[in-house]
Amino acid sequence: MKRALGLTTAVFLAAAGSAFAADYPTRDITTAVVWGAGGGTDVCNRTIMAEMAKVLDININVINKTGGVAGANGMNYVKGQKADGYTLVGLSESNVTSAVQGGFDSKFTDVWHPFIVGGSPDVVSVIPSAGVNSFKDLIEKAKAGPGSIKACASGAGSIHHLNLLAVQDGTGAEFQFVPYKGSAPCQNAALAGEVSVVVTSVAEQQQLIKGKKFVPLAVLVADAFTIDGFGTIPSAFGDYPKLSEFLPIMQAIGFAIHNDASDNVKQTLGDAFTKAMQGDVMKKFADEKYYVLSGAHGDDAKAVFDSLESQFTWKLFELKAAKFSPAKFGIAKP
């Protein structure tokens, strides 16, 4: 009986498999977002999925599978599902640290075939009482008194911390880094005057920038960034070209499918993704959420994630915050 059942299942699966290969997608797709509802990754996935659903003419359900080390629960859940393209994982650059922290057992791009929607660039801001008007001004001041200016950039080993470190490496200035549990407590500390420099994303700071609580000095990407109703924030690369050796380290928010999904699935999703990204809805989304859109998928996106993974994991290892050496997973040094 059992054997018969097994056989039937096998036959069914084979039949189903071939059907999928020829024709994808034929039923609803589920996207499991590894971060909480309402967070950047969640909102981004809900928007892009709604657009892709229109292109693919099926439903895409977005659910949240949170928890675990660096989003490991959601990633392991999707990894355990069939590689048939019907279960996607919504994720971000922060998930690349899961492996070295003991939550996930492989190098990121060995398992995932990523699609990057984009992210909000990091911006260096000061509080008005700091009396600094330009990025150059700030760097010169920091150079004059190494470690005398207090800066916050979320927690140690976070993307904002990596951006601050890159600023130090690229300009030779030295700040006193004060860690907080996230961007919100860090920005709060700046409002209270506990630190004077803030490095977080434009999306996180925009309200405080427009409300004149923070003075934005420079964005840490190659191009200047315009905030509606405020003005343009110059790129830090202008005065310090050497920064381009270390930056940008930008958010990469998007989703991924199994690497061993069939080419047909990758192709179909890739086309739908590209089409969705070109639509007006995503442009409007980028404006409202202060994102820079990417649109990279497949090998291009893998290159981005490989670089982020290498920088993040080795930094954490250096901070002794990693459980395993990145070398264990074959992650190259930056």
Partner: peptide, 27 residues
């Protein structure tokens, strides 16, 4: 300020963002 005062308020921040309301000085 857009800074949640307590853990449930942090969840509420997520919900606001989901409904396209970004709290802060400009709200």
């Amino acid at each position: 300020l857009g800074i949640p005062g307590s853990p449930p308020a942090a969840m509420l921040l997520g919900a606001l963002m989901l409904h396209d309301v970004t709290p802060g000085p400009m709200i």
